[in-house]
Design a protein around this nucleic acid. Sequence first.
RNA 1: GGUGACGUGGCAGAGCGGUUAUGCGUGAGCCUGCAAAGCUUAUCUAAAGGGGUUCGACUCCCCUCGUCACCUCCA
Length: 464
Amino acid sequence: MKISDTLTNQKKELEYSDKVRIYLCGVTVYDQSHIGHARTIIVFDTLRRFLEGNNIPVELIQNFTDVDDKIINRAKEQGESANGLSRKYIQTYFEDSDRLNIKRATNYPKATEHIDDMIDLIKNLVNNEIAYTSKNGVYFRVSKFSDYGKLSKKKTEDLESGARIEVDEAKESPLDFALWKFSEEPPNWNSPWGKGRPGWHIECSAMSIKYLGKNFEIHGGGRDLIFPHHENEIAQSESFTCEQFAKIWMHAGMITINGEKMSKSVGNIKSINHVLESWGPNVARLFCISGHYSKPIDYTEDLLKENLIKLRQIETCYYELRLAEEQEQSEDISLLLVESREKFDAALNDDFNTPLGLSVFFNMIKTINSFAADEKITKQMAKQALPVLEYMLEVLGIKVQTVSDEEVKSIFDLINKRETLRAEKQFEEADKIRDQIAGLGISLIDHKNRTLWMKKEPIKAENQ
RNA sequence: GGUGACGUGGCAGAGCGGUUAUGCGUGAGCCUGCAAAGCUUAUCUAAAGGGGUUCGACUCCCCUCGUCACCUCCA
């Protein structure tokens, strides 16, 4: 598999020995997460599913930043402890994540539970004079890291003249960033330099090294983290280990609204909860991988609607295969299946090109659905096709609604009753039964010689 | 101001130096008791603008214009 590496600006072969180790920068837990956060998570979840679907073990570490000025300020506003607030939003995060059908990461380390690891790392930097203490805290001496700027392609001179950096006379250079901030107020911890709390970037260095080692395969996050967060992580980590940090830097594009980045400060947020309520998890997932992961996706109702229609096609296909009956005619679809699987994998293997992969996927679905419409899907074909479809659904994280055996039985009885009525041309009565079936969440499709039933995901936005 | 990315048909969105991407939408037709879904076919014969390289460019190079992101917390 090849992945575009932000550091080298090239597609790099993903090399690994026993497993692929991924560190994903998670969220700062001070509020509900929005669909932009979801996009990044979905991209990496889908990547992980793809690797695992091809028998490549993955270790995925995703952190929670649970100590930070924003959390502290928000907690103060709400008269709550910082810890209580972050816990609450961690819980919300997991609720969102589960509903989005995100596989749980291997571990979700929290900053507050790794203070000692951070202190050890800072100690090392201080001892090597890469970090220094000032009256406000401990700072990283950027001038000691000659590669500074290599990820974000920035020159230190340009940054200095940028003049948008906070003015802090206690720092040797405006570029230096905090490893440890002194604070007498909680949340704070003891350190060799004084009471305080960690700077933002140090947690990811400490935790990624702790869980994944000094160099691991992929470090990911949103594009907006490239500078300064990931740049600073590289500086800290490589100063500490004297080795190359992550092998590949993979960054997900932003979700925009009217071409503008979704963010709290602009106030154009669509929360994950909101999107899930209106469109459900499958549409949300399809939407989030409908463009290449590295590019922005503009949030529009039209685009969500388009993905809803696609979900319906998937559901139709799934049930056509599941409920296939014996037919007189058939087609040979082995080649279609083999080619679809190959092209799907090839698309994802080439820099995780999900839009291309999806086009292969929907081509296959369209073809199968067209055979189904012509009464050409046999049990034998379905048996061949289902594993391929299910593999792709598993990779994409799409969950089609299923029904229990008892439900199947009652649905079956109702359908038979309706068929009898239809044969007798008692259409009003037949329609009543159809409504009754619809009440169970089941939709019917009348084919020439049979009636297909399917359980569609209820989508609120569809009826509006 | 600096850095990076991008500009493809009504919309979304890929690949590729010479062949239909694909999907959605739209028109017509088929199927159906109706509905839904599906099918067939058509539609749009796209490449921001201007140069250049080439036998040939949407694809490579240059310029102009435009959009966005980062340079401050940010997925």
